[in-house]
Amino acid sequence: MSVRIRIPTPLRRFTAELDVVAVDATSIRGALDALDAKHPGIKARLCDEQGALRRFVNVYYKDEDVRFLEGLETSIADGTEISIVPAIAGG
């Protein structure tokens, strides 16, 4: 099942400046693992050592915060989109 992951500007250094990466997965966790397999190092920016999402990063699936769904275990459907929304500090 192919899903698109939207990559925010601060993390595009891990994806060779790609703003969207397509991966095959059936859950949010699987999608982030697949993203890390394609672009090593990016998952450590999103998840802590225990595998939980970091508190300054949010993941949205179909415009809904995954914290209000099933978290990283949320099932995902073919052709849908995941967005990564990090805290942006500059001003």
Binding site: T9, P10, L11, R13, R45, R54, R55, F56, V57, N58, D65, V85, P86, A87, A89, G90
Partner: peptide, 20 residues
């Protein structure tokens, strides 16, 4: 409600690195 805390120093690309 969205971000409980800011990124710790060194964990995120900064404005100094990426500019504005």
């Amino acid at each position: 409600c969205l971000f409980d805390e800011g990124p710790p120093p060194g964990t995120e690309a900064t404005c100094a690195e990426l500019g504005i």
